[in-house]
Design a protein around this nucleic acid. Structure first.
Length: 433
RNA sequence: GGAACGAUGGCAGAGCGGACGAAUGCACCUGUCUUGAAAACAGGAGUGGGUUUACGCCUACCGGGGGUUCGAAUCCCUCUCGUUCCGCCA
């Protein structure tokens, strides 16, 4: 949520920043919010004046009563004011609700350094592939779904039988590999992050704090009977962990990480990436997250980039960094860098992580504040997060990058400790099938 | 799912219709005293909103929402959460 005060005092600053997102309707929402805010303050001023008078009157009534004097004149004046106050209060609640809804739908202001652009075509490669092989061999040019099925470690058909389209299921060493990736990602960040095992079902308030609600309700699974939502990412419960709290500056930064399943309806992407593991309704991910002071957020962003890229690099696959342009930036995002891994089999750069800085946008929604040492008052924290590792796409990229000429897949060395001794996913023998 | 009880400031805990933003204790901050500390004494401390150049002033907040009243932490309704007992269960 953007700051109403900023919108009030420096509307042009906000307008210019949001203009860069290249979404005309946002500017209309902005003007709407400004009008509502003006109206709201008029109401508040009059309502508070009425309340002040009522408070004075009831004190006088109390005094008269003690002296056994008649107070009917004052009481009737107060009654009339009470009616007015009630009407104003109702109007306040109405206007406030609309204003809040409008504000919740206005996106965050992009960081000044974010490149201008209108859509994903304008994203810029911030760091090219550092280890792109000259060429890939033919045996690496096999899509992971073919390899996965041939090796008996991916069973899409039965996943569809059990749950429907866009669900996947790994088996045997494939399942072990998926879990190994999570285990590995957690261990790589355990030096600085507290591991959390959060709930996978959360309240509407929780999904509103991170920005999924109210605007993107169609993208998440809703359990209407209990008014709960399946988390689309551990970002949601982790960000809200300190919702409504005032933290001490000395406790910052708060660093959290979590393994969790992620549930996404993928409402707008029917028919896209239907094969294999590139897009599914449920997947596993390890998320890292930080709550920081505003001034230390840029350094944390750099640290996150370093952590994510070094993890990907340690698996030995070509990757690149993408600076997301203003037109492609998510609603809550102040700045985002995507990490993509190259998958030679399907010849695609796969987004395996998004490293994001939300400035105080989520903190304002979730009411996460901090108090500076020895100072009065509070400020909103900055939130940052990143996928330390998203399983399916990394899993897919491994099957393509490390496919051998005989059809087997070599397990990256970094994962060996988590594979129960397996260093290779072999081609099944005829009898084993 | 059923029943009973409960929810007050950082914590503990009073208040049960009128000067209550709220006693008291602990914790905290600032003075005085002390070489320093402790103790003692004095004082100060919450959050949001509106308004003001500013000091400040007004307003709201005793789990959430609604009601009664001139006036609600206090009375009534309702929801949520917690504790205990029963039921069910990994």
């Amino acid at each position: 949520m953007i700051d109403v005060r900023l919108l009030r005092t420096q509307p042009d600053l906000v307008r210019n920043a949001l203009q860069r997102r290249a979404k005309p309707e946002v500017l209309e929402q902005l003007d709407h919010a400004i009008r509502l805010d003006v109206r709201l303050r008029d109401i508040v001023t009059e309502r508070d004046a009425a309340r002040a008078r009522i408070n004075d009157l009831s004190k006088e009534v109390g005094a008269l009563r003690r002296e056994k004097k008649d107070a009917e004149t004052l009481m009737s004046e107060s009654r009339a004011l009470g009616d007015r106050e009630k009407a104003l209060d109702e109007e306040y609640a109405q206007v406030e609700a609309v204003l809040r809804d409008v504000l919740l739908r206005i996106p965050n202001m992009p960081h000044p350094e974010v490149t201008d652009g209108t859509n994903s075509d304008d994203n810029v490669v911030a760091r090219g592939p550092l280890q792109m092989p000259e060429t890939f061999a033919d045996h690496q040019r096999v899509p992971h779904w073919e390899t996965g099925h041939a090796l008996g470690i991916l069973d899409s058909e039965r996943a569809v039988k059990i749950s429907g389209a866009m669900f996947t299921m790994q088996r045997g060493l494939g399942a072990t590999l998926a879990r190994a990736l999570c285990q590995y990602a957690l261990d790589r960040n355990a030096d600085a992050f507290e591991e959390i095992r959060p709930p996978s079902l959360v309240s509407s308030a929780t999904l509103t704090a991170t920005g999924q609600l109210p605007k993107f309700a169609d993208d998440a699974y809703n359990i209407g009977r209990d008014d709960l939502w399946c988390i689309p990412t551990a970002e949601a419960p982790l960000t809200s962990l300190h919702a409504g709290e005032i933290l001490d500056e000395s406790n910052l930064p708060v660093r959290l990480m979590a393994f969790s399943p992620c549930f996404r309806r993928e409402a707008g992407s029917a028919g896209r990436d239907t094969r294999g593991m590139l897009r599914s309704h449920e997947f596993d991910k390890v998320e890292i997250l930080a709550l920081t002071t505003p001034e230390s957020a840029p350094a944390m962003l750099e640290e996150f980039i370093e952590r994510v890229t070094s993890t990907i690099a340690s698996l030995g696959m070509p990757y690149r960094l993408l600076e997301i342009c203003t037109g492609d930036l998510g609603q809550s995002h102040h700045r985002s860098i995507d990490v993509e891994v190259y998958a030679p089999g399907c010849d695609q750069w796969l987004e395996v992580s998004s490293i994001s800085w939300f400035s105080d946008y989520q903190a304002r929604r979730g009411d996460i504040r901090f108090r500076r040492d020895g100072k009065k008052g509070t400020e909103f924290v900055h939130t940052l997060n990143a996928s330390a590792l998203a399983v399916p796409r990394v899993w897919a990229a491994i099957l393509e990058n490390f496919r051998n000429a005989d059809g087997s897949v070599t397990v990256p060395k970094a994962l060996h400790p988590y594979m129960r001794g397996a260093t290779l996913i072999p081609v099944p023998t005829a009898t084993a099938r």
